[in-house]
Nucleic acid binder design. Structure first.
Ligand code: MN
Ligand code: MN
Ligand code: ZN
Ligand code: ZN
Lengths: 126, 126
DNA sequence: TTTGTTAATGCAACAAAGTTGCGTTATATT
DNA sequence: AATATAACGCAACTTTGTTGCATTAACAAA
């Protein structure tokens, strides 16, 4: 079940994702907001916001969990699927609003897919 | 640095990967061989075999580390890049020997990419 | 075959990310 | 204002993987 009450933690976390398509790791949010809220609260709010279709999550290069804002998703349908890009130099992760055509795989039913591209971001690419 | 001495652990672990393009998680190997070898040894041997270009590793859907045999790789060059498929029903993971064309991403330098496709495998797909 | 070097191992302790249980607090409804 | 319960904080825990160090064993040289 998703968010039911608009608490301080919900408000502050939502605000963190208010700008753009940059992803934030749960770890970074705890480092940043861990004095204001308990890490358990942060994990639980993120989880619920994902349930609501407000955020989506994925795993970065070290298996860390990252979150970013969803576009046009609801609690019933998560339709905002796209690859992610992680900069190997500065660590920044963002959503790539492009379509990826998956390869043909006979005799298998594809349900989900995750593509993580790594390299140098705009800022770090000379 | 990679494997230097052909120990029992190296021999047994190599044998686990002798057949086909099925991946095995470090976790599964420890469950399976943990009475024969210490988990530290298992982690270290896998790590070294990857250095040698004998195995490659990637992260599965829960962030677990998986290993599979490399084809035509050396310690100098890991060229066997391909997507992986994880069955959501039986958990099996295998290497997909296909090429994936990445989307165009302006102003960024792509260095690595990982594609994990999830769904139902041949055996679980009715 | 014996000896010597050191890679590899086992063990225990640790680290990091995330989860769970439970008593307390605060939101929102009546 | 009173009430119900969602959300919270805290501590303890789980899981996967790592590190330091003393001991063992692979392997080549004598
Ligand atoms: Mn995204
Ligand atoms: Mn593979
Ligand atoms: Zn960057
Ligand atoms: Zn299956």
């Amino acid at each position: 079940m998703g968010v039911i009450r608009k608490t301080k933690a919900v408000e502050v976390l939502l605000n963190e994702f208010s700008t753009g398509s940059v992803a934030i790791s749960a770890k970074a949010l705890i480092e940043q907001l861990g004095e204001m809220f308990n890490k358990t609260t942060i994990y639980r709010v993120l989880d619920k916001l994902e349930d609501d279709g407000v955020l989506h999550s994925f795993l970065g290069k070290d298996g860390l969990k990252w979150y970013a804002k969803c576009n046009g998703c609801t609690s019933k349908e998560h339709k905002d699927v796209h690859p992610h890009f992680q900069c190997l130099q500065c660590g920044k992760v963002d959503c790539l609003p492009v379509h990826v055509s998956l390869p043909e795989i006979p005799n298998r039913k594809i349900e989900i897919s995750q593509l993580l591209i790594q390299g140098k971001c705009e800022a770090c690419f000379v």
